[in-house]
């Protein structure tokens, strides 16, 4: 019974924080920030299915983020606001097809080779988006993407994104605790043993890749609706890099770590990033500190202090 409540705590905090955003006074700016947080939160949580869970460092998940955004953006721009929703539904389907293809190619490689191949695919997608002006309007990006009337306005769109993201995150949370999640953890720790308990490492990795990429694409699709403006840089490798950083910042070993990381990162960027030109210097230093001293992120720090105080209180860690 105790365990059940423990599972609920992060969800209660989740609903309090992101639901509460709707009631912040004069919160236009904060609702806008909250939209970014929740959408990037979905991106980071999906990314962590690969990284924290399965042990696969993809440096190219921006490809799916951009893909989702461009499908949604181009469809709504060319066919009208009603197609915004249809495009959003088509996004995961297209992402499934693309990720099966790219996943099957890149998962044949391991470690650094996998990381670099995913990076190469994403950079290729970025290059194509920049150069194929006729289709994507190149470096200009796509502006003024129309949305259906119901989704217009910050509050309405936030509510919509919140519902979609929450459904997706719930699905990923179930996956995290599922037997399949157990296999992914096994692959991260000892893929050889997974093979010799009768499971194909490649196929499980591929499914993880497809799921991760599809949810990333949904996040990208939602992003196209925030300001109605998208740019090829959504495909760029620094986008993938930032998501990795946010994931590490929050903690890759806990399910909610990436969302915590995104929240802190976006708020920091809002406060610090606007007052300095040297924002990447700041995030470089944060990344350096996290990797060197706190590889388990904020969740890791919290658990450490949690255990520390539990011990002081005379409690025992292991039942």
């Amino acid at each position: 019974m105790m365990k059940r409540y423990k599972d609920l705590v992060p969800w209660i905090i989740y609903f309090l924080v992101f639901g509460g955003m709707l009631f912040v006074r004069g919160g236009g700016h904060y609702v806008h920030l909250a939209m970014q947080i929740i959408i990037l939160g979905l991106f980071a949580t999906s990314f962590n299915v690969l990284f924290g869970k399965t042990g696969l460092l993809s440096f190219g998940q921006a490809l799916f983020y951009g893909l989702g955004a461009y499908i949604t953006g181009m469809a709504a721009k060319s066919f009208g606001p009603d197609y915004f929703m249809w495009a959003l539904l088509a996004v995961p389907l297209v992402a499934i097809v693309v990720s099966i293809l790219l996943g099957a190619l890149s998962l044949r490689l391991s470690d650094v080779y996998f990381t670099m191949l995913t990076l190469a695919f994403a950079q290729l997608a970025w290059g194509i988006t920049i150069k194929w002006y006729g289709l994507t309007r190149g470096d200009d990006g796509i502006q003024a993407i129309p949305k259906p009337a119901l989704l217009t306005g910050n509050v309405n769109y936030y509510l919509f994104s919140f519902l979609v993201v929450t459904a997706c995150i719930y699905f990923l949370w179930r996956l995290d605790r599922s037997p399949f999640g157990s296999v992914l953890e096994g692959i991260r720790q000892n893929s050889l043993r997974v093979t010799f308990t009768g499971m194909s490492v490649f196929r499980h990795q591929l499914l993880a890749y497809v799921i991760s990429s599809s949810f990333t694409a949904i996040a990208g699709g939602l992003y196209a609706g925030i300001d109605g403006s998208i740019h090829p840089d959504m495909f760029y490798w620094t986008m993938s890099g930032s998501i990795i950083l946010m994931t590490i910042l929050g903690g890759m070993s806990g399910f909610f770590g990436p969302i915590i990381g995104v929240t802190i990162f976006v708020l920091l960027e809002d406060m610090v990033g606007r007052s300095t030109e040297y924002w990447s210097f700041v995030i470089g230093i944060i990344m350096l500190i996290m990797v060197m001293i706190f590889p388990h992120g904020i969740i890791g720090i919290a658990t450490y202090f949690g255990k520390f105080f539990a011990r002081k209180g005379g409690q025992v860690d292991n039942p």
């Binding site: 599922s178 037997p179 308990t197 009768g198 499980h204 499914l207």
Partner: peptide, 13 residues
């Protein structure tokens, strides 16, 4: 793996 549950991604493990 033995019980063939390894593809189940929605139930509690």
């Amino acid at each position: 793996s033995y019980h063939g549950k390894n593809w189940n991604f929605f139930s509690n493990r």
